[in-house]
Amino acid sequence: MPTAHVYKKDHINTDEIIPARYLNTDDPQELARHCLEDLDSSFVQKVRPGDLIVAGEDFGCGSSREHAVWAIRAAKVGAVIAQSFARIFYRNCINCGFYPIELPNALELIDDGDQLSIDYQQGLIHNLTKGRTIHFDPLPEFALQIIRDGGLLEHIKKGQSMQGGRSK
């Protein structure tokens, strides 16, 4: 069952998620080895496939490096749940087909080590440890469509306009 790795911190930036000293490669597997290195050097040892990162406000602020999303995804993190996201990171997630879950009081509702299961269709997080179900606001339809298609480029290849409708 996916486990929450909770960082009770705001403004976790892309330099902490993947330091620039590793940006001389865009190989996701290599990036994954350094995921969150300057925030928590033990993260890559303890994360299990499908686990979740939970954090405070403004997650992913700073550099536009999409390497941050690739590093998290290649570390097999299932999703990031944050109280809010910085805008470029948020767009990068959607465009990579990786669902960013915005939950305004995430740090009150989820503790480190909690077992969670996520229902993206219904916009629900089941906190199995606490026996509680949490609602989150789903992404807007056009963003969901990009995620369903597997990312922005797949979406474009399908002939969808970027706003969601058929392009003319």
Binding site: I88, R91, N92
Partner: peptide, 27 residues
């Protein structure tokens, strides 16, 4: 690059994007 916002000094709308968007715009 996130500091693309610099160009706004010249009365333009300028913003930083990631690599996937860069690819989309180039195409």
């Amino acid at each position: 690059d996130s500091h693309t916002c610099t160009y706004g000094a010249l009365a333009a709308f300028a913003t930083g994007i990631g690599s996937t968007e860069l690819a989309a715009v180039i195409a």
